[in-house]
C-alpha cells in the first residue's frame, strides 16, 4: 500500500459521495448518465465476487468493495425513483452493448486463467476502462455541465490516474506487475484527457464547464 494507491481509492470514494451530494443539493440527477452508473455497478459486481472468500484478507479492501457496490446501487435506485423526472433517455443514448460486448471479448481472449472468477475479473477491468464513455458522450451532447458534476468526474478520473504511479511504484519497488489492469487503466485515464484539460482551464479558474 503506497500513497498513490490510498489517494486513488480515496478519490474514488469521494467521487461517489460528490455524486450523491449533487443529487441531494440540486434535487436532480440532470446531467448524470444512468448508463454509466449501471456499467459501474456491473463492474463492481463482477470484480468483487471474491469478497465472499477474501473477507478476512483485508478489512480495508472488503469494506471499500462493499461501499462501492452499495453506494452505486443506491445511486441507481435514487436515479430511477426519487429523481427519475430528470432522466433524459434522449440524451443518454450511448450504445452500451458494444462496451459490454467488447469487454466480454477481451475478457475471454486475455484472462490470467480460464476460471469463472478470473474471466469475470478481466471483464470488469476492461468494462471499467470504458464505463465513463456514456457519461462523457452525454456531456458532449449537452455541451456544458454543472460545476458539481465536473468535480464528480474529476475525482473519478483522478482515481485511475493515481493508480498509474501506484503501478509504477509497485513495478520498481515490489516487482509486482499486472499487465491487464495497467493497460486498461492507461486507456481509462486517456479517455479523460480532454475532460481534464477543460476542467483545468475552466472549472479550476472559476468558470463554467462549457465545451468550446
Amino acid at each position: 500500500m503506497n500513497l498513490f494507491r490510498i489517494l486513488g481509492d480515496l478519490s474514488h470514494l469521494v467521487s461517489i459521495f460528490i455524486l450523491l451530494q449533487k443529487m441531494r443539493s440540486t434535487r436532480s440527477c440532470a446531467g448524470i448518465s444512468l448508463r454509466t452508473q449501471i456499467l459501474y455497478l456491473m463492474v463492481y459486481c463482477t470484480r468483487y465476487l471474491d469478497i465472499f472468500w477474501t473477507f478476512n484478507a483485508s478489512l480495508y479492501n472488503s469494506s471499500m468493495k462493499l461501499v462501492f457496490i452499495l453506494s452505486t446501487a443506491y445511486t441507481i435506485y435514487l436515479m430511477r425513483t426519487v429523481y427519475k423526472t430528470a432522466l433524459d433517455p434522449q440524451i443518454d443514448t450511448f450504445a452500451t452493448y458494444y462496451l459490454v460486448g467488447g469487454a466480454g471479448l477481451l475478457a475471454v481472449l486475455f484472462p490470467y486463467k480460464y476460471t469463472v472468477y478470473e474471466v469475470l475479473w478481466s471483464f470488469s477491468i476492461w468494462l471499467e476502462s470504458v464505463a465513463i464513455l456514456p457519461q462523457l458522450f452525454m456531456l458532449q451532447r449537452t455541451g456544458e455541465a454543472e460545476t458539481i458534476t465536473t468535480h464528480y468526474l474529476f475525482a473519478l478520473g483522478a482515481y485511475r490516474a493515481l493508480y498509474i504511479p501506484n503501478w509504477l511504484y509497485r513495478w520498481f519497488l515490489e516487482g509486482h506487475f499486472d499487465p491487464i489492469a495497467t493497460v486498461a487503466g492507461i486507456i481509462q485515464t486517456l479517455l479523460y484527457s480532454d475532460f481534464f484539460y477543460i476542467y483545468y482551464t475552466k472549472v479550476l479558474k472559476g468558470k463554467k464547464f462549457e465545451l468550446p
Binding site: 494507491r5 481509492d9 474514488h12 470484480r47 471474491d50 477474501t54 484478507a57 483485508s58 479492501n61 471499500m64 468493495k65 462501492f68 490470467y112 475479473w121 493508480y163 501506484n166 516487482g175 509486482h176 506487475f177 499486472d178 499487465p179 489492469a181
Partner: peptide, 10 residues
Amino acid sequence: IRIEEVKDEL
C-alpha cells in the same frame, strides 16, 4: 511477472 492469487487492488 508475478500474478497474485488474491487481487489486492480495488
